[in-house]
Amino acid sequence: MLPGNSQRLNKYLALALGISRREADLLIEKGSVCVNGVTAQLGLQVSSSDHITVNNKEIPLAPTKYTYLLLNKPAGYVCSRRSQGDTPTIYDLLPLPLKHLKSVGRLDKDSSGLIILTNDGDFAHRMTHPQYRKTKVYRIRLDRDLEPLHQQMISDIGITLDDGRSQLTLAKLRDGNLREWQVTMSEGRNRQIRRTFAALGYTVVRLDRTNFGNYSLGDIKRGLYHQINIQ
């Protein structure tokens, strides 16, 4: 944002904090946002010369545009800004100018594949909220052959977990190979795929996400990223 140019406060906060505009409006409604020492109101216009705080914490100058990255996460990395002991984070794979981006959803430490990062909170909301039912595709490997009955249970009936029923769409990756499967789902509960197979006595020894909504890894190498444009 060039000096003198103005924009709505909720858009400014969304860009600066990587949240949705609705989330920014809620912060304003709660009285958490001050502009030049005065509690802000909805609809306020701000510019780069204004001093903006949220819960008394100064908000840095917002970027001028939204950024979107597709990252091929290696196993062994966590989707967190904070280091967890000696475990690296996905932010160790990004240059400093991109470290402000937030991950859209997560993959656990032992999983690999597609992670989307952005500072567009509205986009992140559309990708992750259950009402939008974005399809995700994974390639997995089990510790042993999947029995046909168990395949049918997972695909047709669903498996009851502590947080509800889990139903996944399974497809063989190679004829005759009953350990490697393509899994398609539109939910995103914590470690859902691993817990679903564990309930039947299997261990997922490899889990790799290839697709998330309309986005796919393509030829992005492990540990690298590609910047994309969103219309």
Rank of each mutant, 00 (worst) to 15 (best):
R126G: 04
L98C: 09
Q227G: 09
D92Y: 02
K30F: 02
G158W: 00
I52F: 06
V78Q: 09
L42F: 10
R194D: 02
K99M: 12
L168Q: 04
T160V: 14
I230M: 06
T135W: 03
R194Q: 11
I90Y: 04
G121S: 07
L42K: 14
A198Q: 13
V137P: 08
C79G: 02
D86E: 12
K73R: 02
T53E: 13
L93G: 01
S112D: 11
Y66P: 10
H125N: 15
V204P: 02
L13Q: 10
Y132E: 08
R165T: 08
K172H: 11
K221R: 15
N119W: 13
Q192E: 15
R141P: 08
K57L: 01
T135Q: 14
T87V: 15
S80M: 07
S155T: 15
T210F: 02
K109D: 01
R22C: 15
L114V: 12
L71D: 02
V104M: 11
L69I: 00
R139D: 12
D110E: 13
M185E: 01
N119F: 03
R174D: 10
T160F: 15
D162Y: 11
Q151Y: 07
S6K: 14
V78H: 06
G18N: 06
M1R: 09
D143Y: 07
L44E: 10
I228Q: 00
